[in-house]
Structures are given as C-alpha cells and as structure tokens.
Design a binder for these strands. Structure first.
Lengths: 198, 198
DNA sequence: TTTTAATTGACCGACAGTCGGTCAAAGGAG
DNA sequence: CTCCTTTGACCGACTGTCGGTCAATTAAAA
C-alpha cells in the first residue's frame, strides 16, 4: 500500500502557506498557479484538496474570521463601558493596517458569497454571526440587568451586525469614515437607549 | 468626412438592448459575445462605446437605479404614515419578482464596486445616495416639525441606508427575511423616536 | 479619388480546471 | 530478503472559455 497523507492537515497547510499571498494579491488576482508555487506543489495537486479556487480562498478567510472572533471575546472582557465595548466590536474590523488588508479580502469574500453562496459559506456565515450575536447580547443583557439600558436595546442593537456589513461594503465607495459613522450612530442610539435615572 | 454617429445615443441603445439579457444571465455569466449578438453589432464595436465589460454593466444598472429613484419619489408622495413611508423606502428593493431579479444584479454590482470601485461608480453612488437621503430627510423633517418624531430621528434614520445595503448583502446568506427585519427594526426604533404626547 | 470615421470578427493571452500518466512506498508471495 | 503488484499522491501539459485587441474592410463625405 502507498502512503496515506492526512488530507485535512495538508489542506490546512496549503491554505495557511498562502495567507500572506492572499492578503497581498487579493482574491481576484490570486492565481491557482501562484498558489501551487507558493505551496511548492503541482497545480493538479491543489485540486486533490480543494474543489475550486473559491474553496481555497474560503478556507483562508475562515481562519481570518476565527482570529477575529478571538479578538472580539477579548474586547468583551475588557474593563470599559458597555458603549465602548459595542463600539470596539464594530470598529475592530476597520482598525489598523493589518486588519484593513483583511477587510479588503473579507470584502471580496462578501462579494463572492453574495453572488454564489455555497452551502458551506451559508453555514459558516450563520455560525459566525450567531457567535457574534451571542457575545453582543451578553454584554447588552448585562447592561439591562444593571439598569443601564432599556430592555428594548437588545432588539435594536442586534441589527447593528447587518449595519456593520453595509458599512464594510459602502465605506470606500461613499467616501465615509467607518469609525465616525459607528461613533455617531452609537452616540445617538445610546441617548435613546440609556435608562434615565432622575 | 464619414458619417458621425451619436456616440452617447448608441451607447445607451446598446446598453438598453441588453437589459433583459443582463437580468436573465447575471453579470458573471453575461459574455461580451452575447451582448454583441443581442445588440446586432460586432464584438469590437462594443469597445468603441465602452471601455470594458464593467462599463456596460454599469450603464445598465444605472438605469435600474434611476427607475428606482422614481419609485421612491412616488412613495414619498403617497398618503401613508411616516413609518409606512420609511418602511416602503427600504422594502421597495426586496419587493416583487421583477425587483428581486434587479436586486440580484444590484448585488453583483455591489460586489464589483466593492472590489474595484471606479471614479464613475463612486460619483454615481454618492449622487444616488444623496438623492435617497434627501427624500428620506424631507419625510423625517416634516414629521419632526409636526411633532410626530423627536429631532434626533434625523441622525438615526440616516444610517438606515447603510443598514439597507447590509441587508441586501446578508439576506440570502443568513437566511433572514428582509421584510421582517426592516419591519422589526422600524417598530423598535419608532417606539423610541416618536414623541410621547401625554 | 481620397480621406477618415465606423465596424468587424479572427485572433491573442490569461486563467480555471482536467486528465493521462509517473512515482514511491507499502504489502505480500516465494 | 527480494522482487512484483497495488495504490494513493502528485504533476504539468492541455483544454475550453472569455475579455479584450487590431489589421482589414466598408462606405460616406469631401
């Protein structure tokens, strides 16, 4: 019998080795030949582990998003006000240079998933959005139980996730500043959502 | 001198003749050869009037969006409550079958404009978003001056436009119902934004 | 007849994805 | 131990598709 490789591991290894390449080129300009070269394997081998280009890119982006979930959890445990937590949540993505690059890739991914969402993408998207909402809800519920926020806050804040996607899409095109917009919206919202203690 | 054609007119004619084709195929599966055939011209001629495929698609989509602006203006003049107007504004896009097809094309366009926004796209996007905001603001300002809504409503409602983009992007992927989501958000928001007359 | 705008489709290069074939390691028969 | 067979891993030349180009052609105006 011939050697048996760990398909899952090799799959992840190939994807991992192309992380930087993807960040550098973007999805559209990343070619399968480049990937093969970078991973030091033949082009045909790629297709032993991935069904198509989308599949590879998705694998890499999945890891970006998982990184980000970790960052979110860190924020949720920081010693800052509820408003600052929510702000950081939505701003994290637009933050520094590294994440700007990731944002660009994420945008391209959004683009693809918008046009041809595969079952895999939908499942992952729902899973990661649920996770995001869970963390966010926990923060808000805490604030409500402390009497900081009105109970209806939950049902409004939960929509911010969709707003966040919109912001990622429109930021560049509309020439708006994501940070400012989030700040502005949260400022206005929190005035309405905070319980008045008079 | 040879005949001089009206470049602008021919440009529009070519685009117009491919409206249905675009709705049927989607951007990705629409080929230049198909366009040339549909418009009964040679493939090379296309490039006398458009700089690339994107350029054609953009021309067609521009006309979709302009159609939509007309529909918005109609809604703004209907005899319905402020909340219903705003609801219709954001729901219009997700409405019936014809507009569902347009929405799909619009999503593909969003995808392209997200990745490679051209100067033209940015300008158009800003112009059409300004128009949208103007109509929306007028409605809200009227409601404020009538004492229906709190003054801060302006600054919150204006963000709905971005939310709307997010909804277009995420609707299918998250398996959510755009109509329900808009309804739900507006219901929650209006409770907070309506002036209490007690 | 000459000039020049307009048009055209054969052609090109890039790229995703395929396929026939090679290779090396792991049994297993003798 | 050795030689043969099996089999999964691997490969890159090749294919088909498509956006975009350009040399050749047409025909109206001067």
């Amino acid at each position: 019998m011939a050697i048996i490789v760990d398909k899952d591991k090799k799959r992840r290894d190939i994807a991992l080795s192309c992380k930087d390449l993807l960040l550098e080129c973007g999805i559209k300009d990343l070619t399968i030949s480049q990937i093969a070269k970078q991973a030091s394997i033949g082009k045909g081998t790629i297709y032993e582990y991935f069904s198509n280009k989308e599949d590879i890119v998705f694998e890499i982006i999945t890891s970006f998003i998982e990184d980000n979930e970790t960052r979110l959890e860190q924020v949720s445990e920081m010693n800052i006000s509820t408003k600052e937590k929510i702000f950081s949540f939505y701003f994290l993505f637009f933050d520094d240079e590294i994440y700007k690059k990731q944002l660009n890739i994420y945008k391209e991914y959004l683009a693809i998933s918008m046009i041809n969402p595969t079952k895999k993408m939908i499942d992952f998207s729902q899973k990661s959005c649920k996770k995001f909402n869970d963390i966010s809800n926990k923060i808000i519920e805490e604030a409500i139980s402390k009497g900081e926020l009105k109970p209806e806050s939950i049902n409004i804040i939960r929509h911010l996730d969709i707003y966040h996607t919109g912001l990622a899409v429109e930021e560049q095109k509309r020439g708006i500043n994501a940070k400012q917009e989030i700040r502005n919206l949260l400022d206005s919202l929190f005035v309405l959502l905070e319980e008045n203690h008079d």
